[in-house]
Design a protein around this nucleic acid. Structure first.
Lengths: 359, 359
DNA sequence: CTGTTAGCGCCTTCAA
DNA sequence: TTGAAGGCGCTAACAG
């Protein structure tokens, strides 16, 4: 936050005409100068910019939008902003947008099995945003189509859609990396604690390859890593819990009640992995001596707990998606079909929750 | 998200004139009918609304703003959206705003000691929002003044300002309640693990009573509860750490290295309290047998860990603040000086991290 | 209760 | 490189 230039805050909002009059030019020239259009003499531009600042003039966004048809606003659609991944993506996106003078309009949805879903009618977005960034919101093909109908660029982060720009992880690779880390330490009996693919997902959407769900991808990675090691997991080695620490804890008790011989667990997220640790502690299983745990995310508190994890940087996902979305909005840039699926880097962080199995 | 009424999504945006023509009325009547103004015959209104829906007409926000001077948008200012308290407040506020047709525009600030601070120039808010909600952003008097200069209603959540509507906790009471819980169990030597009052706070602002910082209030509560029990805390009983679990862990080691005789610790937040637990575990101190811990917040993961806490509901703070802010914008409502400081309820949740001291 | 008519403040051709 | 002028789509007086 900075102070007004010289403490002058005009009681009535100035219009472009005031600036034009003061600078001795036409309103058209002021408009061009303030937008830094090339067809303005440097001297003129400097004078106009100077007058505008001195007067404390700010362009009226509504008037500019009405006249130009552009809003310089991006809609951020998300089911939750109060979860680690989502909050960080939104943070990264908002800062990237603000840096180039774009506004971020927030729309939270209610997910769930309700029909019709509560939440935003895509039509409220019409004429309100120049682009849409969907953060981790699993959408059916029909829902995606209704957004695409808005006729503004569309991008996804986290969970995506094959026809549209999507910034996400290679979730299969993530599940595989976590599992291979345990395999490499000598584990053979490796369970998987996961969460329901987000509720509200249209049945069949995933199967048809039209969208993407991190939990499903990571589970598939766990499966293939085991398969490549010649291991056929017992169906009960995979348990589903509610998202979060408590869900991870409950799921782990269920898992270990049925399969106490497991020596390692791959959790779908760090939060659930922390639940695994708590359950282990409650069962007097020492970590990592009697049970190894790997999470995914790289949340801060994992460091204090010594949690081994596959870390990601969701803030950069938000930034990258925002920047690509802005590029999509530039008519001069040809939209290359080729790079619609952006896979972000992840990094295995080995800490104290994994070790060679003792049994 | 709902589907377009009948799958018709006009390729060109309709204007109010199209609706007027189709309904056989003037544009003024359409405007009135769609805004549900009283001066429209019910029959006419129904017909207009019906035509508008059938055509898939959506009002242009820019045109409406330009003509009316109102944007139906609230600016949400916050330093972080990726922390528990902030994310939940914003979530609650956004949903409350959306429910009455208002948009939420997100502005994240960088806090810190930089001068001038990075972040938003308040002037970008001019003519862009009808009201401003500041979430947990500690502002100097000058900064508050520059926001107030925008001449739109202003409200604070979490950290506030005595001259403006503020929705927050009774943080002194919170610190007191946590401490009194331990005193009631028989503890006498009670430490306090806290975090720096947010960086960027203007020096002297708190002392002058012009704004409010949760850490400072909670510490004061801890102090007064001890004082009332006739206990004079050693200066070293209070340690400051970085915000978060890791900070709580480090601060606790520092605290217990110097004062191993402490039997209880009041942490400024649940996250820091979890750091206390980790440190205790690392020192082979059993919780609660050898050390009791109380946090503040009521985060979800505290349940799985059995953390005793003073819980709050930040989502409702966001909702309440948004609703009051909207009320402030209604010219018909007289703004009562009396209820500018809204104190939200908190609740002591006793779990397994506190017990009578054994020494 | 409804229609007519000015703007709201800016952008963007078109001409100069 | 600059200016003049017509909208952009809607709201809010004012009339009727």
């Amino acid at each position: 936050m900075t102070e007004p230039s010289r403490g002058e805050s005009p009681m009535v909002a100035l219009s472009i005409e005031d600036v034009a009059a003061e600078a001795g030019v036409s309103t058209a020239t002021v408009s061009r100068a303030l937008r830094d259009l090339p067809s303005v003499a440097p001297k003129t531009r400097d004078r106009v910019v100077d007058v505008a600042r001195r007067l404390g003039y700010v362009v009226s966004p509504s008037a500019a939008s009405l006249a130009s048809g552009r809003t310089r606003t991006i809609g951020l659609l998300t089911p939750w902003i109060n979860r680690w991944f989502f909050g960080n993506v939104i943070d990264g996106a908002e800062r990237a947008l603000r840096a180039v003078g774009y506004d971020a309009l927030l729309y939270t949805f209610n997910l769930g099995r309700e029909h019709p879903r509560l939440g935003v009618d895509p039509r409220v977005l019409r004429r309100r945003v120049d682009g849409i960034l969907v953060v981790g919101l699993p959408l059916s093909r029909k829902e995606v189509a209704s957004l695409a109908d808005l006729d503004v660029p569309l991008a996804f982060v986290g969970t995506g859609h094959e026809d549209h720009l999507t910034v996400r992880l290679d979730d299969v690779g993530v599940g595989r990396a976590a599992t291979e880390h345990l395999l490499g330490l000598g584990h053979r009996r490796i369970g998987h604690v996961t969460a329901e693919p987000e509720a509200g997902h249209a049945p069949g959407a995933l199967e048809a390859g039209h969208s993407w769900s991190p939990p499903l991808g990571r589970e598939q990675g766990w499966r293939s890593a085991l398969a490549e090691a010649g291991i056929v997991p017992h169906p009960g080695w995979r348990v589903v819990g509610a998202f979060g620490m408590e869900g991870g804890r409950a799921a782990t008790h269920e898992l270990l009640d049925a399969h106490p011989d497991l020596t390692g667990i791959v959790a779908v997220s760090d939060e659930m992995a922390m639940g695994v640790s708590i359950a282990a502690q409650e069962r007097d299983l020492a970590i990592p001596d009697q049970l190894s745990v790997v999470g995914v995310d790289g949340i801060n508190s994992g460091k204090a707990l010594g949690l081994t994890t596959i870390s990601q940087d969701p803030e950069s996902h938000g930034r990258i998606a925002a920047e690509l979305l802005l590029r999509l909005m530039d008519p001069e840039v040809e939209y290359a079909q080729s790079d619609k699926q952006i896979l972000c880097a992840t990094h295995l962080v080995v800490r104290r929750s994994t070790a060679a199995p003792s049994r």
